[in-house]
Amino acid sequence: MRVFTAVIAIAFGLLVLLGYFLPPTLFPTVVDLQTVLLNWAVILTGVAALVGIFNLIIVHTDKVRRAEKGSVYSALLVLSMLFTFAAGMLLRPDHVAMQRVVLSGIILPVEAALMGLLVVSLLYAAIRLLRRRADAMGIFFILTAVVIFLGSATLPFGDIPVISTWIRPWVTQVLALGGARGILIGVALGTLMTGLRVLFAMDRPYGGK
């Protein structure tokens, strides 16, 4: 099984890979095959999401059955899930009721409020950062953040001179650009190597050592 799964990963990976580089006019079959494989992958990814949700139900149902600590919350989770899923299956997700009640009534407020709570946490962390990390990176981190805070705000009479008109754009478009590009290249290199390792079956995240 271990070898078989590796062969499958390599084979389909190479087929998808060929679809990128072979010209469609010369190899239409390969390019079409890439599309077919990707559509299959889209379907299977959706199924995997369903399996994950099913697993979530199983876990919390077990908690409720065993009456563990916090099982009330699990029961709420299961109930809300079943209710939403039932409503979504009946009404479909694009129904206005689903939008208003589920999205605008539950999902969006909770997520946005959680995001709002982050304001306090971020400020708290930034204030106490230099107490523990007073090195160059930390100092430049705080200074840059301060510059951006100042440059992003305005005064009643308009932009803050120099800061908003010159320093902030220069920091975001020059200084931060160099670091961001370096990080992006590093991420891309890591992604490239990870993909190659998977295609060479050196990494097998699908299972098997």
Binding site: A126, I127, R128, L129, I142, A145, V146, F149, L150, A153
Partner: peptide, 18 residues
């Protein structure tokens, strides 16, 4: 804007203090 300035003051002052 007020939130950004508020953060600026807190981070700058609090940061220096810390």
């Amino acid at each position: 804007s007020i939130g950004m300035l508020f953060a600026l003051i807190l981070v700058l002052g609090g940061g220096f203090w810390n």
